[in-house]
């Protein structure tokens, strides 16, 4: 159509393979640094709170993203939460199948407006209900590095 000569033979089309060979090191930022230092050292979660908008941020932000107020005081909100929603995941990021499907959940932390996305551990899928209370399970302190991977997941509240 638009070009006057087209490929009409199946054996002719070719492709060129390549990659974008980049590697990254991310800092956690001002708020992220505080959050994960606290997870690592104290095993608890921090929030920031905007009294103008009445919003509490988990993960904490140094700013309120609704009014731009600077948020510089951090509140310990504990590690208890509620299942906001969940899914049974069968795949990894690269599209490959997981050996065992995992339950991923969005957990609202305490009475904040935020929360964390992580695995539910120690449950059968049929046991999970929206609104159900759960509690964070952390790695032992000695193994924590200051990362989302310091959290093993959220387990039953006993």
């Amino acid at each position: 159509m638009a070009i006057t000569e087209k490929i009409t033979d199946t054996t002719v089309p070719t492709f060129w393979e390549g990659a974008i060979p980049v590697r990254y090191v991310y800092t956690f930022g001002l708020a992220g640094e505080k959050f994960f230092r606290t997870v690592k050292d104290k095993g608890t979660f921090l929030a920031t709170y905007c009294d103008e908008c009445d919003i509490s941020f988990v993960p904490p932000k140094v700013y309120c993203d609704r009014c731009f107020k600077e948020l510089d005081s951090y509140i310990d909100v504990g590690t208890l939460g509620y299942v906001e929603t969940f899914t049974l995941s069968f795949r990894n990021m690269d599209g490959s199948e997981k050996e065992i499907p995992k339950i991923l959940a969005m957990v609202r932390i305490g009475d904040t407006d935020g929360g964390l996305i992580h695995y539910l551990e120690g449950f059968e899928i049929d046991e999970i209900a929206i609104g159900m209370p759960v509690k964070a399970v952390l790695k032992p302190k000695s193994q924590r590095k200051g990362s989302i991977e310091d959290i093993i997941g959220f387990g039953p509240v006993r």
């Binding site: 800092t27 700013y63 993203d65 609704r66 009014c67 731009f68």
Partner: peptide
């Protein structure tokens, strides 16, 4: 050369200053 802030935090710092410089709020 290397900022501790995330890109989001840098954006906020500049934007907040811009609003303050002309007495506006995000609203």
């Amino acid at each position: 050369r290397r900022a501790q802030e995330t890109g989001k935090e840098l954006s906020w710092q500049a934007s907040k200053m811009a609003l303050e410089s002309c007495d506006l709020t995000l609203d």
